[in-house]
């Protein structure tokens, strides 16, 4: 079976799924509309610039990417859980193998489908940025389109990593409800607790506390100009944020580790 046929197979499974559709629609509606909220403020606290300047190129890339990060945090993480949990809960993953898919084809189908979602989400991100950047800032004066460091690659990786992390949790837990709960518990509380209550105390202000997976993912597309503001308000001996390159490399490593776990589990586990 070709890669295209495997992606098509996954598409047949989810194209009529209400949860999948609602999640996709939310992303397509919220990504272009949420950044506009910033325009409702007359001014922003220093050192942040005026709200309208966020819509100028190249800053708009950062603003939409930051919005996308929040959406991916909720929507793509959940979607990752959902894509595998639907198959494990209904035992259709097992049935696919009975029907003739090999385990490696199952892995390829799922990972390629996730990759396709991340590609589509990134393509929509680019379109949104171009649309908001060109039509949202009046007048567009032809300022340079790109300025952020490899922001498109970072955005793509961010989408992919949330999907893969959610997928891994869904694969481990097998129940949609419990897996979704665990995903949100981890991203909201567990990692934060480990970082600030355990790591910070045990390693005493060590910079390693910022290399946790969700933190690295958040730092892939941070709030434009936000890093300076947050650093100024904290009395730590190190920068609380990963640089784009650090965040990119760290997330790459985590994503590869998560994918390795996914492959191992599907290849070795009884279905």
């Amino acid at each position: 079976m070709s890669i295209f046929q495997l992606i098509q197979l996954e598409w047949f499974k989810y194209r009529k799924n209400t949860t999948f559709r609602v999640t996709a629609i939310l992303y397509f509606i919220l990504l272009p509309s949420l950044p506009s909220i910033i325009l409702s403020f007359d001014t922003l606290p220093p050192p942040l610039p005026s709200p309208a300047s966020f819509f100028d190129f190249p800053e708009i890339w950062g603003l939409v990417a930051y919005t996308g990060n929040w959406l991916a945090y909720f929507l793509f993480g959940f979607l990752g859980v959902y894509i595998i949990s639907v198959d494990t809960t209904n035992k259709t993953l097992r049935q696919s193998i009975i029907n003739g898919l090999s385990r490696s084809q199952v892995i390829k189908a799922k990972l390629m489908f996730i990759l396709s979602i991340a590609v589509l989400a990134t393509a929509f991100y680019i379109l949104t940025v171009l649309f908001l950047g060109i039509f949202g800032s009046e007048p567009y004066e032809g300022s340079p389109l790109f300025g952020e460091e490899f922001i498109i690659a970072r955005y793509f990786l961010m989408c992919l990593a949330y999907l893969v992390f959610g997928f891994l949790i869904g694969l481990l837990i097998r129940s949609i409800g419990v897996a979704t709960m665990l995903y949100f518990l981890y991203v909201f509380f567990i990692e934060v607790i480990i970082r600030y209550l355990v790591h910070l105390n045990v390693f005493k202000d060590h910079r390693s506390m910022i290399f946790y997976p969700m933190n690295a993912l958040e730092d892939l597309t941070p709030f434009p100009f936000g890093g300076e503001a947050a650093n100024a308000s904290m009395n730590l001996s190190f920068n609380l944020f990963l640089s784009p390159t650090e965040a990119f490399i760290t997330t790459c490593i985590y994503t590869l580790v998560f994918i390795a776990f996914i492959i191992y589990i599907i290849l070795k586990r009884d279905m």
Binding site: K13, K16, N17, T18, V86, N90, K91, T92, R94, Q95, I98, N99, G100
Partner: peptide, 15 residues
């Protein structure tokens, strides 16, 4: 060459 049902019928409930 092989068609099979193992335990319960497994399909997507929303399809």
């Amino acid at each position: 060459k092989v068609g099979a049902i193992l335990e319960t019928p497994n399909f997507y409930p929303y399809l």
